[in-house]
Amino acid sequence: MSQLLPPPELIPDVSFEAVRDRLVANIAEDFRVNSIPYTTLSIQADPLRRSLETYSADVTNTKIAFNDQWVLHFVRYSSGQALDELAAYYDVSRMIDEGDDRLKKRLLLHIAGRSAAGPKERYQALCMDADIRVRDVEVWRDEIDPTLHVAILSSIPGGIAPQDLLDAVEAYIDHPERMVTSERFTFSSAVKRLVNVELDVWLFEYARNSEATDLETSLPNLWDKEDLLGLDLTHAWLIDNARGNGVNNVRVVQPSDDMVALPNEAIGIGSLKVNVRGRGR
């Protein structure tokens, strides 16, 4: 799923400090205008200040709770029952054992593919509807041949779609309620291509040595969460996602160039070697 924008806010200004300081300033001004001497409002242990801070915390938590409920109305930020309600509005229901991420992906495809005869998002959504084992789908048409080619990446370890899964998807698409008579399809498993990666990294001055070792596990896992079909494994992705968590700088040793994926191809990180070349600020 694509990177999320910052979540929308129904109520802005959820800073505890901003609410507290505004209340303290208002109370202090009321005392001043009414010529009431009160000199301890700036002291942390002052009873009135403590009461204002308690109220500020309640106000802030209420605003945060409203915002947390508000974002559930947006597909990309929704989860659980709220997501089920959103999906139902588009006549989409959660499949058995289907997690939130897969349901959101399928729902967004249904929204994008509302036209009965396309675009390709409609076919991608239908393929994911067909079987919970469908992890990702790519649909494309060659320049001359009008046939629609459908590549299935399965959730089975290794990603290869077995024949019974391809048959199930084809039968589902071919149902009279869903089939567009003018379209012809071919169904095939996605191709999984493993690419070995080697990185030179420089750690921050005080980073743990284990940060490099942790990266050898975390980076492939992060890549595997992407929508892999037809996705290029680029130097930019490797560098952006390897930095942070103690890593200051990154240089890609292998592959020597960006790895370009075919429409029916899912690139996987085979082995990852991380070389610590030094430390820096």
Rank of each mutant, 00 (worst) to 15 (best):
V14Q: 07
V14M: 04
S15L: 14
E17T: 14
E17Q: 13
A18S: 11
V19I: 15
L23H: 06
V24A: 15
A25Q: 09
A25N: 09
A25S: 13
I27R: 12
I27E: 06
I27W: 06
A28M: 03
S35K: 15
P37V: 13
P37Y: 10
Y38W: 13
Y38Q: 09
T39C: 10
A45W: 13
A45K: 12
L48N: 00
E53Q: 14
A57T: 10
A57N: 08
V59P: 01
N61E: 07
T62L: 12
K63H: 08
I64M: 13
F66H: 04
N67I: 07
D68A: 15
Q69E: 02
Q69F: 03
W70F: 15
L72P: 00
V75I: 15
R76V: 07
R76E: 11
Y77E: 01
S78T: 02
Q81P: 00
A82N: 11
D84P: 02
D84Y: 12
D84T: 13
E85N: 13
E85F: 05
L86A: 04
A87Y: 01
A88V: 05
R94I: 02
I96T: 11
R102I: 05
R102A: 11
K105M: 14
R106P: 03
R106Y: 08
L107N: 05
H110R: 14
H110M: 11
I111F: 03
G113T: 07
A116W: 10
A116G: 02
G118D: 08
E121D: 14
R122Q: 08
R122K: 07
Y123F: 15
Q124I: 00
A130Y: 04
I132T: 01
R133C: 04
R135Q: 05
D136R: 04
D136Y: 01
V137Q: 03
W140Q: 10
E143T: 08
E143P: 00
E143M: 07
